[in-house]
Structures are given as C-alpha cells and as structure tokens.
Amino acid sequence: MGVEVSVSGLTKSFGSQRIWQDVTLTLPSGEVSALLGPSGTGKSVFLKSLIGLLRPEQGSIVIDGTDILECSSKELYEIRKLFGVLFQDGALFGSMNLYDNVAFPLREHTKKSESEIRKIVMEKLELTGLIGAETKLPGEISGGMRKRAGLAR
C-alpha cells in the first residue's frame, strides 16, 4: 500500500528568504517516513509542497508516476486523494459545528445519502472520543479536541 514519492532538485523561497535548496529524496512505496527538525526549518513548507498547496521555484515532485508541478488541476486533484493531511490546528470551519465539519468532505466529494453520511460521521466521532460534542463549534472546544475533529474529518 502507498505510493513512491520522488523529489528532485526542489528549491523554495518566500521573497528573498530561501527556505531550502536542491532537495532530492525518495520516499519508497509502503514505508513510513518521518520529517524531523527544529521549528522554522521548512518542514511544513516541504509537506505543503508535496501535496501541491505550495509551488517550489525549481525541481520536480513525482507521485505515483505523475510530476505534480507539471500536471493538470484534474490530475493534481486525483493525486491529492492519495494523501491524508492533519493540520496542526485541525483546520476546521469556525462557523460549522463538529458534526458538519466532519460531514463536509463526504457531502462535497461523494454521492452518499445523508443517512450514510450520518453513520460515517458518528462512527468517526466515536473513534476520536468526540461523541457528545458534535453540536459544539470549534471555538467552544479545546485544542486537543479540535485536532481530533480534524482527524475524524
């Protein structure tokens, strides 16, 4: 399970601030890899580049045989389906309760009925210890609960 990710000659800057230069590595299919380093060294920038949220100035990122820096928006959308991303802050919609936050991608990207969505959402909330909090807004819960809600989504 999983896909190979091959990065070659990647360089990323924000204005005159060089984040990293000429990064080359391969993440083998089916293996678990970790990205470690002190705060401010570009770990999040690198991960956002791997899923196409940020665009490096140079290099290539080949995922499952597709260079995401050269592919179409439709191809990038399909590649992104191979990833699960949990942002540090949970990246929840502040105006939606936890139930609707978890249901959002199911409503947007599937043709499931509301009864199917309800079953899946409640299962995910139970798995993450959030049963009973489904009507709360993100601002009404702790940071740890927001993180778990992001995981449930």
Rank of each mutant, 00 (worst) to 15 (best):
R107N: 07
I120Y: 02
E108V: 08
S29T: 09
G129K: 03
S8G: 09
I63D: 08
L86P: 06
S6V: 13
K48C: 14
L130S: 04
I68H: 03
P105D: 02
V7T: 09
L130W: 04
D67G: 09
Q21A: 09
E108Y: 03
M96E: 10
I117F: 12
V32A: 10
L92D: 05
G15W: 08
G30N: 10
G52M: 10
L130F: 06
E114K: 13
I51P: 07
D100R: 00
G52H: 10
F83M: 07
Q88H: 12
S73N: 15
F46T: 05
I63L: 03
L50W: 12
S39G: 11
P56E: 02
Y99R: 00
D89Q: 06
I68E: 03
R118P: 05
D64R: 00
F104Y: 07
D67H: 02
K12Q: 13
T41G: 05
I61Q: 00
D89M: 07
L36Q: 02
F93L: 00
A103C: 03
L27C: 12
T128F: 00
L125I: 02
K119D: 08
S39P: 12
K43P: 10
N97R: 00
A91M: 04
R107W: 04
I131Q: 10
V23M: 06
L76D: 12
R118D: 09
E114T: 15
G9C: 09
G42D: 14
S13W: 11
T24G: 03
L86K: 09
Y77N: 11
E108S: 13
G84H: 08
D89H: 13
L106P: 05
S72K: 05
G9T: 13
M96V: 06
S49T: 14
L92M: 01
T128E: 08
S39V: 10
T135R: 06
D100V: 05
E57D: 13
A34H: 07
L54I: 15
I63Y: 01
G129Y: 07
K74M: 15
E57H: 15
L50S: 07
N101R: 03
L86F: 08
T110F: 03
E114H: 13
L137W: 00
Q21C: 09
G65N: 02
I131E: 08
L127P: 02
T26M: 04
W20R: 01
T135C: 10
I131G: 05
Y77E: 14
E78V: 07
L106V: 09
E78D: 14
E31L: 09
L86C: 08
I51G: 05
I79F: 09
E114M: 12
L54R: 15
N101E: 03
K119I: 00
M122A: 06
R55N: 11
V7L: 08
S33P: 09
G15M: 15
K111D: 10
L76A: 15
L27G: 10
F93C: 01
R80N: 01
V62W: 04
G59I: 11
E134H: 02
K48Y: 14
V45I: 15
I19M: 11
T24N: 05
G59N: 06
